[in-house]
């Protein structure tokens, strides 16, 4: 199993234990989020997802959407969460930059904020096809924090 880094590269002013990063995959890109809670790790991974397409700092939190996922397996829940975001990005032509996730048992409820893709300002690099089960893991680290990761097909 691929392990999360114990100290992911902090980004965008994130707190030391909450961070996101991309990891290497020959054809595609891996996303990884870490945080004090499972929900925070999922939020960070969502930022990593946006960063595949554009700089998250360039995305204004103008419009809000609600996302709900139901899945008892935390790893499958993580992929469902990313795929729910990918679906919104594709159908609404949106990019998202702010995420507030709550997880209770098998249920994830989230508020997400973002704006319509503006090619001139966001310079979007690539479209995301789907989150995959490759290098998928949701794990608790020795310091009690959470880490969630998988490869995303682009």
């Amino acid at each position: 199993m691929v392990q999360c880094l114990s100290h992911p590269t902090p980004a965008l002013g994130a707190a030391p234990r909450s961070a996101w990063r991309h990891f290497e995959h020959r054809a595609d890109i891996g996303v990884e989020g870490a945080g004090a809670s499972l929900a925070e790790a999922f939020e960070q991974a969502a930022t990593a997802l946006t960063a595949i397409v554009a700089d998250p700092a360039s995305v204004r939190a103008e419009r809000r959407y609600m996302v709900t996922c139901d899945e008892p397996d935390p790893e499958l829940l993580f992929v469902d969460w990313l795929n729910a975001l990918i679906y919104r990005m594709a159908t609404e032509r949106m990019l998202f930059s702010r995420f507030a996730v709550r997880i209770s048992g098998a249920r994830l409820r989230a508020e997400i904020w973002g704006e319509t893709v503006d090619p001139a300002r966001h310079h979007p690099a690539v479209e995301i096809k789907g989150a995959t089960y490759t290098a998928l893991s949701v794990s608790r680290r020795s310091d009690g924090s959470w880490c969630a990761r998988c490869v995303v097909d682009v």
Partner: peptide
């Protein structure tokens, strides 16, 4: 395009489960 990506995503999960 998006249709194929979504079919892939949905059936992959159904088949895995």
């Amino acid at each position: 395009r998006g249709l194929g990506h979504q079919i892939g995503t949905e059936y992959l999960k159904q088949m895995a489960v």
